[in-house]
């Protein structure tokens, strides 16, 4: 494909201007928002336990403990975290497997935070793995018991497990978990899970918000780590997304499907075809996960050095787009070459 065609196509960024910062969106925190805001499942689980079991105070205490541990992990308070780890371990020791609901519910509350502690503060991927795999069993029990929203925990744990393996350099294992969960989220069926995701899904917005989180989590991670594969032919991404034999979920944003197809084409070495598809579709819209837009944009700029043809103001606009629209930090832009080399 001629570089000037691409340069013409990229003129769409000529008018790009970052949106002014939005006022805090109070609706985002409202309980009826459809946006996937990545949380609250543990609290929902607590409420479920409280409904099903006596000892409300004890269970609330355990929930509160896990939140405290999570918080100090997030702020990298390594030593303080050990204090809460000890408290959590005291509670583990009291659990009785015969009281199955309590056993699995409380482990579902503690295990993810313990996994996070070992992953994030200790970089002990093996121990993190142990907690995560245990957690998947716990969640299955809860789902079987009737806590269907546990499916939200399950999908996230698949993603987290994939991330832990990825960071440990075990790309095959990572891709396996990532593929299973992506197939499930993208499809309209139940795949290897207990029931189709649509049974708990609140809305199309929520699905697309979840998909954005998962796509971005995997794609950005893969592109930033050359060991997982070359930028444009990333073995890891191919292993996750290639040849999915599924019926795609109707609620999925069509442009995201297009972007995925383009990403795969380019990754499989059919760059020309992939870029032609890009020129025929509308993937540079906010509904498409940032990581996919970034990937395709990079491919366009690189193809026959099309980026070199762009006038300076347009280059600047594209950098602005990267920062403001795709949410990349300067260091990410630097890590995620080669776009940086051009723009």
């Amino acid at each position: 494909m001629n570089a000037s065609i691409i340069a013409d196509y990229l003129k769409q960024f000529e008018d790009y201007a970052p949106e002014p910062p939005k006022e805090a969106d109070s609706s985002a925190a409202s309980s009826n928002s459809n946006k996937f805001d990545n949380g609250h499942i543990f609290y929902a689980l607590l409420e479920y336990i409280i409904r099903e079991l006596p000892e409300r105070e004890k269970h609330t205490y355990c929930y509160s403990l896990s939140q405290k541990l999570l918080r100090v992990c997030q702020s990298k308070e390594r030593n303080v975290a050990t204090y809460f780890v000890n408290k959590v371990e005291e509670q583990y020791a009291l659990l009785n497997e015969e009281q199955a609901l309590e056993y699995h519910a409380l482990r579902s509350i503690f295990n993810p935070v313990m996994a996070y502690y070992h992953y994030y503060l200790q970089h002990d991927y093996e121990r993190a793995e142990g907690y995560m795999l245990g957690l998947l069993e716990n969640i299955d029990y809860l789902i079987g018991h009737g806590f269907l929203d546990g499916m939200y925990m399950k999908i996230e744990q698949y993603l987290n497990t994939a991330r832990v393996y990825f960071n440990a350099g075990q790309y095959d294992k990572s891709a396996r978990y990532a593929r299973v969960v992506m197939q499930y989220l993208l499809s309209s069926g139940k795949e290897t899970f207990e029931f189709p995701f649509s049974e708990v899904l609140r809305s199309a917005n929520q699905l697309n918000s979840i998909l954005a989180l998962f796509f971005n989590g995997l794609i950005f991670k893969a592109l930033a780590k050359p060991e997982s594969g070359a930028f444009f032919r990333n073995d890891f991404l191919l292993a996750v997304f290639r040849e999915m034999d599924i019926s795609f979920n109707e609620m999925m944003e069509p442009a995201t499907r297009d972007a995925l197809a383009i990403l795969l084409r380019i990754s499989e070495g059919e760059e020309e075809e992939g870029l032609e598809m890009a020129l025929d579709t509308q993937i540079f819209n906010e509904k498409v996960p940032a990581s996919m837009r970034y990937f395709v944009l990079t491919a366009l700029l690189h193809h026959n050095n099309a980026g070199d043809l762009l006038p300076e103001p347009l280059k600047n606009n594209i950098r602005l787009y990267q920062e403001k629209e795709l949410g990349l930090t300067a260091s990410q832009i630097n890590v995620l070459r080669p776009l940086n080399a051009i723009v």
């Binding site: 607590l46 409420e47 409280i50 409300r56 609330t60 205490y61 509160s64 405290k68």
Partner: peptide, 21 residues
């Protein structure tokens, strides 16, 4: 007597170390 406290409040009181073990 914590029985009358809603789940939210109980959890917050524990989080803020107002109610403790």
């Amino acid at each position: 007597d914590f029985t009358g406290l809603g789940n939210n409040v109980l959890s917050r009181f524990m989080d803020y170390e107002i109610i403790v073990n």
